[in-house]
Computed example of a mutant assay.
Amino acid sequence: MRAIVVIENRSDLPSDSGDGSRPSASAAAVLLRGGYQVTAAATCEQALPLLSSADACVLAVPISVYSDWRVSISSHRALPTLWWCSERTANVLPAAYPGVITTDGILSPGMSPAELEWSLQLALGQFQTRRQWVKEREQLLTRLEERKWIERAKGILSSTRNIPEAEAYDLLRKQAMNERKRIADVAASIVNAYQLLHK
């Protein structure tokens, strides 16, 4: 993971405190020193074209707006998204933050190149795991929905033909093979036709 887009919207960041403390290094500067190819953007419009060639995205924005930025980025392209945690971006204490934060990792100004590399590699693994979970969840929801159609169709066939449900399932399976369709599609057709006839 070498090419990183850093989004730092200065209008979202609080102004320096004026207490004489040195401002922390920017995310882009720290990543550049770590040997990464960094492109920076201040707005979503600037960032979107840069995402196509990026390996990851670092959001140097206050945690209070992080989720909004992450949704905008992920709707364009799925890639590991990390939060840049600094005094300026950690504008809300964790206990006071009401939302759920989904991030693949956290980076901070004081990280060494080795720490950056480890954090980015762990973020990549987290991102891949999360994507796999989303894919498996979608597959399970699809199977569950298909199972509902099949169960309804079995019930309809069982009651209208006065046969046991096991026989109704065999009838569904045979019809699906004859029509070269999936059993769930045949079941949905039966349920829809039955509901149309009995309205």
Rank of each mutant, 00 (worst) to 15 (best):
residue 47 A to L: 03
residue 47 A to R: 01
residue 47 A to M: 08
residue 47 A to W: 01
residue 47 A to I: 05
residue 48 L to Q: 07
residue 48 L to T: 00
residue 48 L to Y: 02
residue 48 L to I: 11
residue 48 L to S: 02
residue 48 L to C: 07
residue 48 L to M: 07
residue 48 L to P: 02
residue 48 L to V: 09
residue 49 P to D: 02
residue 49 P to I: 02
residue 49 P to G: 06
residue 49 P to L: 02
residue 50 L to Q: 10
residue 50 L to I: 02
residue 50 L to E: 11
residue 51 L to S: 09
residue 51 L to D: 12
residue 51 L to I: 10
residue 51 L to Y: 04
residue 51 L to T: 12
residue 51 L to V: 13
residue 51 L to P: 12
residue 52 S to A: 13
residue 52 S to Y: 05
residue 52 S to L: 11
residue 52 S to N: 00
residue 52 S to V: 10
residue 52 S to C: 03
residue 53 S to I: 08
residue 53 S to Q: 00
residue 53 S to M: 07
residue 53 S to F: 07
residue 53 S to G: 07
residue 54 A to N: 10
residue 54 A to V: 11
residue 54 A to H: 05
residue 55 D to I: 09
residue 55 D to A: 11
residue 55 D to R: 05
residue 55 D to C: 07
residue 56 A to K: 03
residue 56 A to L: 07
residue 56 A to W: 01
residue 56 A to Y: 05
residue 56 A to F: 02
residue 56 A to P: 08
residue 57 C to R: 03
residue 57 C to G: 04
residue 57 C to P: 05
residue 58 V to T: 07
residue 58 V to W: 01
residue 58 V to M: 02
residue 58 V to G: 10
residue 58 V to P: 09
residue 58 V to L: 06
residue 58 V to D: 05
residue 59 L to M: 03
residue 59 L to T: 05
residue 59 L to R: 03
residue 59 L to K: 01
residue 59 L to F: 01
residue 60 A to G: 06
residue 60 A to F: 01
residue 60 A to S: 12
residue 60 A to E: 06
residue 60 A to L: 05
residue 61 V to I: 12
residue 61 V to D: 06
residue 61 V to T: 11
residue 61 V to C: 00
residue 62 P to I: 08
residue 62 P to G: 11
residue 62 P to R: 08
residue 63 I to P: 02
residue 63 I to F: 01
residue 63 I to G: 13
residue 63 I to E: 10
residue 64 S to F: 00
residue 64 S to R: 06
residue 64 S to Q: 07
residue 64 S to K: 03
residue 64 S to Y: 01
residue 64 S to P: 04
residue 65 V to A: 15
residue 65 V to K: 15
residue 65 V to N: 14
residue 65 V to Y: 08
residue 65 V to L: 12
residue 65 V to I: 14
residue 65 V to S: 15
residue 66 Y to F: 15
residue 66 Y to A: 08
residue 66 Y to E: 04
residue 67 S to A: 12
residue 67 S to C: 12
residue 67 S to R: 14
residue 67 S to V: 08
residue 67 S to W: 01
residue 67 S to E: 15
residue 67 S to G: 10
residue 67 S to Y: 05
residue 68 D to Y: 14
residue 68 D to L: 15
residue 68 D to G: 15
residue 68 D to W: 14
residue 68 D to H: 15
residue 68 D to Q: 14
residue 69 W to F: 08
residue 69 W to L: 04
residue 69 W to R: 06
residue 70 R to C: 09
residue 70 R to M: 14
residue 70 R to A: 15
residue 70 R to Q: 15
residue 70 R to H: 14
residue 71 V to Q: 13
residue 71 V to G: 03
residue 71 V to D: 14
residue 72 S to C: 13
residue 72 S to W: 06
residue 72 S to H: 06
residue 72 S to V: 04
residue 72 S to N: 13
residue 73 I to Y: 06
residue 73 I to P: 09
residue 73 I to S: 10
residue 73 I to Q: 06
residue 73 I to T: 08
residue 73 I to A: 04
residue 73 I to K: 04
residue 73 I to L: 00
residue 73 I to V: 14
residue 74 S to C: 10
residue 74 S to W: 11
residue 74 S to E: 15
residue 74 S to P: 00
residue 74 S to L: 12
residue 75 S to K: 13
residue 75 S to Q: 11
residue 75 S to D: 14
residue 75 S to F: 09
residue 75 S to T: 12
residue 75 S to I: 03
residue 76 H to I: 04
residue 76 H to K: 00
residue 76 H to T: 14
residue 76 H to N: 13
residue 76 H to M: 07
residue 76 H to G: 08
